[in-house]
Deep mutational scan, measured.
Amino acid sequence: MSGNGNAAATAEENSPKMRVIRVGTRKSQLARIQTDSVVATLKASYPGLQFEIIAMSTTGDKILDTALSKIGEKSLFTKELEHALEKNEVDLVVHSLKDLPTVLPPGFTIGAICKRENPHDAVVFHPKFVGKTLETLPEKSVVGTSSLRRAAQLQRKFPHLEFRSIRGNLNTRLRKLDEQQEFSAIILATAGLQRMGWHNRVGQILHPEECMYAVGQGALGVEVRAKDQDILDLVGVLHDPETLLRCIAERAFLRHLEGGCSVPVAVHTAMKDGQLYLTGGVWSLDGSDSIQETMQATIHVPAQHEDGPEDDPQLVGITARNIPRGPQLAAQNLGISLANLLLSKGAKNILDVARQLNDAH
Protein backbone atom coordinates (compact mmCIF):
# COMPACT_ATOMS: atom_id res chain seq x y z
CA MET A 1 0.00 0.00 0.00
CA SER A 2 2.71 2.42 1.03
CA GLY A 3 4.58 1.66 -2.19
CA ASN A 4 1.56 2.67 -4.24
CA GLY A 5 1.21 5.84 -2.20
CA ASN A 6 4.82 6.79 -3.00
CA ALA A 7 4.23 6.07 -6.68
CA ALA A 8 1.18 8.34 -6.63
CA ALA A 9 3.17 11.08 -4.93
CA THR A 10 5.94 10.74 -7.51
CA ALA A 11 3.40 10.88 -10.34
CA GLU A 12 1.96 14.05 -8.81
CA GLU A 13 5.42 15.64 -8.64
CA ASN A 14 6.05 14.77 -12.29
CA SER A 15 2.65 15.89 -13.51
CA PRO A 16 2.47 18.91 -15.84
CA LYS A 17 0.91 20.99 -13.05
CA MET A 18 4.20 20.96 -11.15
CA ARG A 19 6.30 21.76 -14.18
CA VAL A 20 8.29 24.97 -14.48
CA ILE A 21 8.37 26.30 -18.05
CA ARG A 22 11.58 28.22 -18.73
CA VAL A 23 11.23 31.13 -21.13
CA GLY A 24 14.29 32.61 -22.85
CA THR A 25 14.55 36.28 -23.85
CA ARG A 26 17.05 38.97 -24.75
CA LYS A 27 18.06 41.24 -21.88
CA SER A 28 16.84 44.55 -23.29
CA GLN A 29 13.95 46.32 -21.59
CA LEU A 30 11.78 45.97 -24.70
CA ALA A 31 12.50 42.23 -24.97
CA ARG A 32 11.59 41.77 -21.30
CA ILE A 33 8.32 43.68 -21.73
CA GLN A 34 7.44 41.56 -24.77
CA THR A 35 8.29 38.33 -22.95
CA ASP A 36 6.30 39.38 -19.88
CA SER A 37 3.23 39.92 -22.08
CA VAL A 38 3.56 36.43 -23.61
CA VAL A 39 4.08 34.81 -20.21
CA ALA A 40 1.03 36.67 -18.82
CA THR A 41 -1.13 35.17 -21.61
CA LEU A 42 0.27 31.69 -20.98
CA LYS A 43 -0.31 32.02 -17.21
CA ALA A 44 -3.93 32.98 -17.84
CA SER A 45 -4.38 29.88 -20.03
CA TYR A 46 -2.42 27.54 -17.73
CA PRO A 47 -2.87 28.71 -14.12
CA GLY A 48 -1.40 25.42 -12.87
CA LEU A 49 1.99 25.97 -14.51
CA GLN A 50 4.91 28.05 -13.30
CA PHE A 51 7.00 30.18 -15.67
CA GLU A 52 10.60 31.27 -15.18
CA ILE A 53 12.10 33.96 -17.42
CA ILE A 54 15.79 33.58 -18.33
CA ALA A 55 17.38 36.65 -19.97
CA MET A 56 20.62 36.61 -21.97
CA SER A 57 22.67 38.85 -24.25
CA THR A 58 23.01 38.06 -27.96
CA THR A 59 25.66 38.89 -30.57
CA GLY A 60 23.49 41.71 -31.91
CA ASP A 61 23.25 43.21 -28.42
CA LYS A 62 27.03 43.13 -27.98
CA ILE A 63 28.25 44.51 -31.33
CA LEU A 64 27.00 48.08 -31.22
CA ASP A 65 29.56 49.94 -33.31
CA THR A 66 28.71 48.28 -36.64
CA ALA A 67 25.60 48.49 -38.82
CA LEU A 68 23.56 45.29 -38.60
CA SER A 69 23.80 44.73 -42.34
CA LYS A 70 27.62 44.85 -42.17
CA ILE A 71 28.19 42.29 -39.41
CA GLY A 72 27.78 39.52 -41.97
CA GLU A 73 26.22 37.00 -39.64
CA LYS A 74 22.67 35.69 -39.66
CA SER A 75 20.65 35.14 -36.49
CA LEU A 76 22.32 38.09 -34.74
CA PHE A 77 19.63 38.35 -32.10
CA THR A 78 18.69 34.68 -31.90
CA LYS A 79 21.78 32.42 -31.90
CA GLU A 80 22.55 32.43 -28.16
CA LEU A 81 18.88 31.91 -27.35
CA GLU A 82 18.67 28.99 -29.78
CA HIS A 83 21.79 27.51 -28.19
CA ALA A 84 20.01 27.56 -24.80
CA LEU A 85 16.94 25.97 -26.42
CA GLU A 86 19.09 23.25 -27.97
CA LYS A 87 20.75 22.45 -24.63
CA ASN A 88 17.37 22.24 -22.87
CA GLU A 89 18.22 25.25 -20.70
CA VAL A 90 14.97 26.91 -21.82
CA ASP A 91 11.71 25.48 -23.20
CA LEU A 92 10.68 28.37 -25.44
CA VAL A 93 12.08 31.71 -26.58
CA VAL A 94 10.21 34.94 -27.29
CA HIS A 95 11.52 36.98 -30.24
CA SER A 96 10.50 39.93 -32.34
CA LEU A 97 9.38 37.95 -35.40
CA LYS A 98 11.35 40.22 -37.74
CA ASP A 99 14.58 39.00 -36.07
CA LEU A 100 13.85 35.36 -36.98
CA PRO A 101 15.29 34.20 -40.34
CA THR A 102 12.87 32.56 -42.79
CA VAL A 103 14.96 29.37 -42.58
CA LEU A 104 15.54 28.29 -38.98
CA PRO A 105 18.36 25.99 -37.88
CA PRO A 106 17.41 22.29 -37.91
CA GLY A 107 15.45 21.21 -34.85
CA PHE A 108 13.70 24.52 -34.22
CA THR A 109 10.32 25.94 -35.21
CA ILE A 110 8.18 28.99 -34.53
CA GLY A 111 5.40 27.44 -32.46
CA ALA A 112 3.31 30.59 -32.14
CA ILE A 113 2.85 34.03 -33.66
CA CYS A 114 1.09 36.47 -31.36
CA LYS A 115 -1.38 39.14 -32.45
CA ARG A 116 0.42 41.83 -34.38
CA GLU A 117 0.64 45.38 -33.09
CA ASN A 118 1.07 48.40 -35.38
CA PRO A 119 3.66 47.18 -37.93
CA HIS A 120 4.52 50.62 -39.34
CA ASP A 121 7.66 52.66 -38.74
CA ALA A 122 7.60 55.81 -36.64
CA VAL A 123 9.68 58.98 -36.65
CA VAL A 124 10.96 60.31 -33.32
CA PHE A 125 12.24 63.88 -33.52
CA HIS A 126 14.95 65.71 -31.62
CA PRO A 127 13.24 68.02 -29.07
CA LYS A 128 14.02 71.10 -31.20
CA PHE A 129 12.19 69.59 -34.19
CA VAL A 130 9.06 68.35 -32.42
CA GLY A 131 6.04 69.24 -34.55
CA LYS A 132 7.95 68.73 -37.81
CA THR A 133 7.60 65.85 -40.29
CA LEU A 134 10.33 64.29 -42.44
CA GLU A 135 9.06 66.47 -45.28
CA THR A 136 9.43 69.70 -43.31
CA LEU A 137 12.84 68.98 -41.71
CA PRO A 138 15.55 71.42 -42.88
CA GLU A 139 17.74 70.54 -45.86
CA LYS A 140 20.61 68.10 -45.02
CA SER A 141 19.06 67.11 -41.69
CA VAL A 142 20.51 63.80 -40.49
CA VAL A 143 18.08 60.98 -39.76
CA GLY A 144 19.25 57.88 -37.89
CA THR A 145 18.23 54.35 -38.83
CA SER A 146 19.92 50.96 -38.48
CA SER A 147 17.93 49.55 -41.41
CA LEU A 148 18.87 49.46 -45.10
CA ARG A 149 15.17 48.94 -45.86
CA ARG A 150 14.17 52.21 -44.21
CA ALA A 151 17.12 54.18 -45.57
CA ALA A 152 16.57 53.06 -49.18
CA GLN A 153 12.86 53.90 -49.20
CA LEU A 154 13.18 57.19 -47.33
CA GLN A 155 16.13 58.47 -49.39
CA ARG A 156 13.97 58.00 -52.46
CA LYS A 157 11.02 59.80 -50.86
CA PHE A 158 12.92 62.53 -49.00
CA PRO A 159 16.05 63.35 -51.04
CA HIS A 160 16.72 66.51 -48.98
CA LEU A 161 17.61 64.39 -45.93
CA GLU A 162 20.75 62.43 -45.05
CA PHE A 163 20.43 58.96 -43.50
CA ARG A 164 23.05 57.56 -41.12
CA SER A 165 23.33 54.35 -39.14
CA ILE A 166 22.40 54.43 -35.45
CA ARG A 167 22.74 51.32 -33.26
CA GLY A 168 21.80 50.29 -29.74
CA ASN A 169 18.58 49.32 -28.01
CA LEU A 170 15.63 51.73 -27.94
CA ASN A 171 16.79 53.46 -24.76
CA THR A 172 20.29 53.99 -26.20
CA ARG A 173 19.02 55.34 -29.51
CA LEU A 174 16.66 57.80 -27.86
CA ARG A 175 19.47 58.99 -25.60
CA LYS A 176 21.75 59.51 -28.64
CA LEU A 177 18.97 61.50 -30.32
CA ASP A 178 18.16 63.70 -27.31
CA GLU A 179 21.63 64.28 -25.85
CA GLN A 180 23.74 64.65 -28.99
CA GLN A 181 23.27 67.10 -31.82
CA GLU A 182 24.06 64.62 -34.64
CA PHE A 183 20.50 63.48 -35.42
CA SER A 184 17.43 65.57 -36.17
CA ALA A 185 15.25 62.45 -36.01
CA ILE A 186 15.44 58.67 -35.83
CA ILE A 187 13.25 55.95 -37.33
CA LEU A 188 11.99 53.18 -35.05
CA ALA A 189 9.28 50.53 -35.10
CA THR A 190 6.00 51.95 -33.80
CA ALA A 191 5.22 48.69 -31.97
CA GLY A 192 8.40 48.88 -29.89
CA LEU A 193 7.73 52.46 -28.84
CA GLN A 194 4.16 51.58 -27.91
CA ARG A 195 5.20 48.51 -25.91
CA MET A 196 7.66 50.69 -23.98
CA GLY A 197 4.87 53.17 -23.22
CA TRP A 198 6.55 55.93 -25.23
CA HIS A 199 3.52 56.89 -27.32
CA ASN A 200 4.28 60.57 -26.72
CA ARG A 201 7.59 60.29 -28.62
CA VAL A 202 5.90 59.20 -31.86
CA GLY A 203 6.10 62.34 -34.00
CA GLN A 204 4.99 60.75 -37.28
CA ILE A 205 3.85 57.30 -38.36
CA LEU A 206 5.05 56.39 -41.85
CA HIS A 207 2.39 55.14 -44.26
CA PRO A 208 3.14 52.34 -46.76
CA GLU A 209 3.54 54.87 -49.61
CA GLU A 210 6.38 56.47 -47.62
CA CYS A 211 7.97 53.38 -46.08
CA MET A 212 6.77 49.79 -46.12
CA TYR A 213 7.71 47.68 -43.13
CA ALA A 214 9.95 44.68 -42.49
CA VAL A 215 8.68 41.12 -42.82
CA GLY A 216 7.02 40.16 -39.53
CA GLN A 217 7.39 43.64 -38.00
CA GLY A 218 5.12 44.29 -35.01
CA ALA A 219 4.53 40.58 -34.29
CA LEU A 220 6.14 38.35 -31.68
CA GLY A 221 7.29 34.82 -32.52
CA VAL A 222 7.71 32.02 -29.98
CA GLU A 223 10.50 29.62 -30.96
CA VAL A 224 10.52 26.06 -29.61
CA ARG A 225 12.18 22.71 -30.25
CA ALA A 226 10.42 21.23 -33.29
CA LYS A 227 9.98 17.81 -31.70
CA ASP A 228 8.77 19.08 -28.32
CA GLN A 229 5.07 18.26 -28.76
CA ASP A 230 4.11 19.27 -25.21
CA ILE A 231 5.50 22.78 -25.63
CA LEU A 232 4.07 23.08 -29.17
CA ASP A 233 0.64 22.27 -27.73
CA LEU A 234 1.21 24.70 -24.87
CA VAL A 235 2.16 27.72 -27.01
CA GLY A 236 -0.47 27.00 -29.68
CA VAL A 237 -2.99 29.10 -27.72
CA LEU A 238 -0.90 32.19 -28.57
CA HIS A 239 -1.46 31.92 -32.35
CA ASP A 240 -3.44 34.80 -33.85
CA PRO A 241 -4.86 33.41 -37.12
CA GLU A 242 -4.86 36.67 -39.13
CA THR A 243 -1.35 37.64 -38.01
CA LEU A 244 -0.17 34.09 -38.74
CA LEU A 245 -1.47 34.12 -42.32
CA ARG A 246 -0.13 37.60 -43.06
CA CYS A 247 3.29 36.65 -41.70
CA ILE A 248 3.40 33.33 -43.59
CA ALA A 249 2.80 35.30 -46.82
CA GLU A 250 5.46 37.88 -45.90
CA ARG A 251 8.06 35.28 -44.88
CA ALA A 252 7.41 33.17 -48.00
CA PHE A 253 7.93 36.30 -50.14
CA LEU A 254 11.23 37.10 -48.40
CA ARG A 255 12.49 33.52 -48.45
CA HIS A 256 11.75 33.09 -52.15
CA LEU A 257 13.56 36.36 -52.92
CA GLU A 258 16.45 35.19 -50.74
CA GLY A 259 16.38 38.53 -48.98
CA GLY A 260 17.72 39.25 -45.51
CA CYS A 261 19.24 41.95 -43.32
CA SER A 262 21.74 43.01 -45.95
CA VAL A 263 19.24 43.95 -48.67
CA PRO A 264 16.33 46.42 -48.77
CA VAL A 265 13.14 44.32 -48.94
CA ALA A 266 9.82 45.52 -47.51
CA VAL A 267 6.19 44.46 -47.38
CA HIS A 268 2.67 45.54 -46.54
CA THR A 269 -0.21 43.12 -45.91
CA ALA A 270 -3.91 43.58 -45.27
CA MET A 271 -6.85 41.23 -44.80
CA LYS A 272 -10.16 42.51 -46.14
CA ASP A 273 -13.41 40.77 -47.15
CA GLY A 274 -11.81 37.34 -47.33
CA GLN A 275 -8.88 38.62 -49.42
CA LEU A 276 -5.26 38.73 -48.31
CA TYR A 277 -3.43 41.60 -50.02
CA LEU A 278 0.36 41.43 -50.14
CA THR A 279 2.51 44.28 -51.43
CA GLY A 280 6.24 43.69 -51.65
CA GLY A 281 9.16 45.72 -52.88
CA VAL A 282 12.92 45.66 -53.37
CA TRP A 283 15.20 48.70 -53.57
CA SER A 284 18.74 49.57 -54.49
CA LEU A 285 20.75 50.82 -51.48
CA ASP A 286 20.25 54.47 -52.42
CA GLY A 287 16.59 53.92 -53.28
CA SER A 288 17.01 55.09 -56.88
CA ASP A 289 16.00 51.73 -58.34
CA SER A 290 12.98 49.78 -57.11
CA ILE A 291 10.30 47.26 -58.02
CA GLN A 292 7.00 47.07 -56.16
CA GLU A 293 3.95 44.94 -56.89
CA THR A 294 0.73 43.88 -55.16
CA MET A 295 -1.09 40.56 -55.39
CA GLN A 296 -4.09 39.14 -53.57
CA ALA A 297 -5.60 35.75 -52.78
CA THR A 298 -8.90 34.57 -51.37
CA ILE A 299 -8.16 33.25 -47.90
CA HIS A 300 -10.60 32.25 -45.18
CA VAL A 301 -9.32 33.37 -41.78
CA PRO A 302 -10.17 30.45 -39.51
CA ALA A 303 -11.39 30.78 -35.97
CA GLN A 304 -8.69 29.99 -33.42
CA HIS A 305 -8.47 26.28 -32.57
CA GLU A 306 -10.24 24.77 -35.51
CA ASP A 307 -8.62 21.39 -35.96
CA GLY A 308 -5.46 21.89 -37.95
CA PRO A 309 -3.04 19.45 -39.58
CA GLU A 310 -1.82 16.59 -37.44
CA ASP A 311 1.47 16.01 -39.26
CA ASP A 312 2.60 19.62 -38.63
CA PRO A 313 5.24 20.13 -41.33
CA GLN A 314 6.62 23.65 -41.07
CA LEU A 315 5.80 26.48 -43.43
CA VAL A 316 8.55 29.15 -43.59
CA GLY A 317 9.73 28.00 -40.16
CA ILE A 318 6.27 28.13 -38.57
CA THR A 319 4.27 25.27 -37.04
CA ALA A 320 0.57 26.00 -36.49
CA ARG A 321 -1.16 22.73 -35.73
CA ASN A 322 -4.38 24.32 -34.51
CA ILE A 323 -4.94 26.37 -37.69
CA PRO A 324 -6.25 24.64 -40.86
CA ARG A 325 -3.64 23.82 -43.49
CA GLY A 326 -5.49 25.23 -46.51
CA PRO A 327 -5.29 28.92 -45.55
CA GLN A 328 -1.64 28.51 -44.51
CA LEU A 329 -0.70 27.04 -47.90
CA ALA A 330 -2.70 29.74 -49.72
CA ALA A 331 -0.80 32.44 -47.80
CA GLN A 332 2.55 30.79 -48.57
CA ASN A 333 1.66 30.49 -52.26
CA LEU A 334 0.72 34.17 -52.37
CA GLY A 335 4.16 35.11 -51.03
CA ILE A 336 5.94 32.85 -53.51
CA SER A 337 3.85 34.15 -56.43
CA LEU A 338 4.62 37.77 -55.58
CA ALA A 339 8.33 36.98 -55.26
CA ASN A 340 8.26 35.28 -58.67
CA LEU A 341 6.56 38.34 -60.17
CA LEU A 342 9.28 40.64 -58.81
CA LEU A 343 12.03 38.25 -59.93
CA SER A 344 10.54 38.26 -63.44
CA LYS A 345 10.85 42.06 -63.43
CA GLY A 346 14.53 42.11 -62.45
CA ALA A 347 14.49 42.00 -58.64
CA LYS A 348 17.43 39.59 -58.45
CA ASN A 349 19.75 42.06 -60.16
CA ILE A 350 18.73 44.89 -57.80
CA LEU A 351 19.27 42.67 -54.74
CA ASP A 352 22.60 41.27 -56.01
CA VAL A 353 23.97 44.78 -56.59
CA ALA A 354 22.70 45.91 -53.17
CA ARG A 355 24.41 42.93 -51.53
CA GLN A 356 27.70 43.56 -53.33
CA LEU A 357 27.69 47.27 -52.47
CA ASN A 358 26.81 46.58 -48.85
CA ASP A 359 29.59 43.98 -48.56
CA ALA A 360 32.12 46.34 -50.17
CA HIS A 361 31.55 49.20 -47.73
Rank of each mutant, 00 (worst) to 15 (best):
V20W: 08
V20S: 15
I21R: 06
I21C: 05
R22F: 10
V23W: 01
G24D: 01
G24T: 03
T25N: 06
T25Q: 03
R26M: 01
K27M: 11
Q29C: 14
L30K: 01
L30P: 01
A31L: 01
R32M: 12
Q34H: 05
T35S: 09
D36I: 07
S37W: 13
V39D: 01
T41M: 14
T41S: 13
L42H: 01
K43S: 10
K43C: 08
P47E: 01
G48I: 09
L49V: 13
Q50D: 03
F51V: 14
F51A: 07
E52R: 12
I53P: 15
I54S: 07
I54G: 06
A55W: 08
A55H: 12
M56I: 14
G60S: 01
G60M: 01
G60D: 04
D61C: 01
I63E: 01
I63Y: 06
L64K: 13
L64H: 15
L64I: 11
L64G: 14
D65A: 07
T66K: 01
A67Q: 08
L68Y: 11
L68S: 10
S69G: 10
K70D: 09
K70V: 13
K70M: 14
K70G: 11
K70S: 07
K70L: 07
K70N: 15
I71R: 05
G72M: 09
E73C: 07
E73M: 08
S75V: 06
L76M: 12
L76C: 14
L76S: 11
F77Y: 08
T78Y: 06
K79Q: 10
E80F: 01
E80M: 10
E80H: 07
E80G: 08
L81Q: 01
L81V: 08
L81S: 03
H83M: 12
A84E: 07
L85K: 03
E86H: 13
E86L: 10
K87T: 12
N88E: 08
N88M: 13
N88D: 07
E89Q: 14
E89W: 08
L92Y: 01
L92F: 10
L92E: 01
V93C: 08
V93W: 01
V94N: 04
V94D: 03
H95I: 01
H95V: 09
H95T: 07
H95M: 06
S96P: 04
S96A: 12
K98G: 01
K98C: 05
K98M: 01
D99Q: 01
D99A: 04
D99T: 01
L100S: 06
P101L: 06
T102P: 10
V103D: 10
L104D: 05
L104C: 09
L104A: 08
P105G: 12
P106R: 12
G107T: 01
T109V: 15
T109K: 13
I110Q: 01
I110V: 10
G111Y: 01
G111M: 01
A112D: 04
I113A: 09
I113Q: 05
I113N: 01
C114Q: 12
C114P: 10
C114S: 12
C114K: 07
C114G: 07
C114D: 10
K115P: 13
K115C: 08
R116K: 03
E117F: 12
E117C: 13
E117P: 01
N118L: 06
N118P: 11
P119G: 05
H120M: 12
H120S: 12
D121C: 10
D121W: 01
D121T: 01
H126R: 08
P127I: 13
K128Y: 09
F129N: 01
F129Y: 13
G131Q: 14
K132G: 13
L134M: 10
E135I: 11
T136I: 14
L137W: 01
L137Y: 04
P138S: 11
P138I: 09
E139Q: 15
K140D: 13
K140S: 13
S141T: 09
S141E: 09
V142H: 10
V143S: 03
G144Q: 01
T145R: 05
S147I: 08
L148G: 14
R150S: 04
A151E: 01
A152N: 07
A152P: 07
A152S: 07
Q153L: 07
Q153T: 05
L154I: 05
Q155F: 11
R156L: 09
R156C: 09
K157C: 11
K157T: 07
P159M: 08
P159T: 09
H160W: 10
H160E: 12
L161H: 11
L161R: 01
E162H: 06
E162W: 03
R164G: 10
R164E: 14
S165G: 13
S165Q: 12
I166S: 07
I166T: 06
R167C: 04
R167L: 09
G168T: 01
L170E: 07
L170Q: 14
L170A: 07
T172P: 04
T172W: 04
L174C: 12
R175V: 13
L177Y: 01
D178C: 14
E179Y: 10
Q181L: 09
I186L: 08
I186V: 11
I187N: 05
A189T: 05
T190K: 10
T190A: 13
T190Y: 07
T190D: 09
T190E: 03
A191M: 01
A191V: 01
G192Q: 01
Q194T: 04
Q194G: 06
R195Q: 04
R195W: 05
G197Q: 01
W198A: 13
W198I: 07
H199R: 11
H199A: 10
R201F: 05
R201C: 07
V202G: 10
V202K: 07
V202P: 15
Q204A: 04
Q204D: 03
I205S: 06
I205F: 01
L206Q: 03
L206F: 12
L206H: 01
H207Y: 14
E209W: 01
E210L: 13
C211T: 05
Y213D: 01
Y213P: 08
V215P: 07
G216V: 01
Q217N: 01
Q217H: 06
G218K: 01
L220F: 06
L220E: 01
L220A: 14
L220T: 11
L220P: 01
V222W: 01
E223T: 07
V224P: 05
V224C: 14
R225E: 08
R225Q: 01
A226C: 12
K227I: 05
D230L: 01
D230W: 13
D230G: 07
I231H: 01
L232E: 04
L232Y: 05
L234M: 07
V235I: 03
G236F: 01
H239I: 10
D240I: 06
T243Y: 01
L244P: 04
R246W: 06
R246S: 13
C247V: 09
E250V: 01
E250D: 15
E250L: 01
E250T: 03
R251K: 12
A252P: 01
A252W: 01
F253L: 09
F253K: 01
L254W: 15
R255L: 01
R255P: 03
H256V: 09
G260W: 05
S262T: 01
S262V: 09
V263H: 03
V263W: 01
A266K: 08
V267C: 14
H268V: 14
T269Y: 01
A270M: 15
A270P: 01
Q275S: 01
Q275M: 15
Y277E: 03
Y277D: 07
L278N: 01
L278M: 06
G280T: 01
S284L: 01
L285G: 15
D286Q: 11
G287I: 05
S288F: 10
S288D: 14
S288T: 09
S290Y: 12
I291T: 09
I291A: 13
E293C: 07
M295R: 14
M295W: 09
Q296L: 13
H300F: 14
H300V: 14
V301S: 06
A303P: 01
A303V: 05
Q304E: 13
Q304M: 06
Q304G: 06
E306V: 14
D307Y: 10
G308A: 11
D311W: 08
D311R: 10
D312E: 10
D312T: 01
P313Y: 15
P313V: 13
P313G: 10
L315I: 01
V316E: 05
G317P: 11
G317Y: 07
T319A: 08
A320Y: 01
R321G: 13
R321T: 09
R321K: 15
N322G: 01
I323S: 10
P324T: 14
R325F: 14
R325D: 12
Q328H: 11
A330D: 12
A331V: 05
Q332P: 05
Q332D: 07
Q332E: 12
N333H: 14
L334V: 15
L334Y: 05
L338V: 01
N340D: 12
N340V: 04
L341Y: 07
L343C: 06
L343E: 07
S344D: 15
K345F: 15
K345I: 13
G346H: 05
G346Y: 01
K348E: 13
K348C: 01
N349L: 13
I350S: 04
L351Q: 15
L351S: 07
D352M: 09
Q356I: 01
N358D: 01
A360L: 07
A360D: 12
